[in-house]
């Protein structure tokens, strides 16, 4: 037996995890159901937000907090869904040969990094908008506007921190995968 055959025999003689195929299939199907449920939840949350604004618009005048949230929601929902719908995660590329996959995936990762940068920027813009509204309300507004702008500013700070944490985590993962795949090109 030559060295190559010996190596092959060693490799193919590995003891493999004893997980039945049926169990693996059940996991795959569970995972698919979870992804579908996640998509349904995202759609439901968006629809509830839109329905909430429409219901308010039809039944009573907007309160200060709703006026403040309107520009935020009208941009946030559009941007979030455009990201969501554009992300077709690796599905088309994954069955291609490795060179093609690496090329497509690298382009996806670059786009993902740009989007994460956009997420950070939009959270910073929201904070800027909330602080500007707060300052304006403090000088010119009524107590209702004070309360509304203050709660928007607090939410914007929390939102910025959350976005920063998530964006940092995903950027790190993307960069790690990018470095690994670049070696294949």
């Amino acid at each position: 037996m030559d060295a190559d055959e010996r190596l092959r025999a060693l490799w193919q003689g590995q003891r493999l995890p004893a997980m039945p195929a049926a169990q693996l299939l059940a996991r795959v199907q569970r995972h698919q159901r979870r992804l579908r449920l996640q998509r349904v939840l995202e759609a439901a949350i968006s629809l509830i937000a839109v329905a909430w604004f429409i219901a308010i618009f039809l039944h009573r005048p907007f309160a200060p907090v709703e006026w403040l949230l309107l520009p935020y929601f009208s941009t946030f929902l559009v941007v979030a869904w455009s990201f969501n719908l554009r992300h077709r995660p690796r599905r088309q590329a994954v069955a291609e040969n490795t060179q093609v996959y690496a090329g497509l995936r690298l382009a996806q990762l670059r786009a993902r990094l740009r989007e994460l940068q956009l997420v950070r920027r939009s959270a910073q813009w929201l904070l800027g908008y909330a602080l500007a509204a707060l300052l304006l309300a403090l000088f010119r507004g009524t107590p209702d506007w004070h309360r509304a702008t203050l709660s928007l500013a607090i939410t914007a700070v929390v939102w910025l921190l959350g976005c920063e944490l998530i964006a940092r985590h995903w950027s790190r993962r993307c960069r790690r995968e990018y470095r690994a795949l670049r070696r294949l090109r």
Binding site: T98, A102, R105, E177, A180, L181
Partner: peptide, 10 residues
């Protein structure tokens, strides 16, 4: 392909 994407360390 997925293994290459999964590689954690350079």
């Amino acid at each position: 392909n997925l293994g290459a994407s999964h590689v954690r360390d350079a």
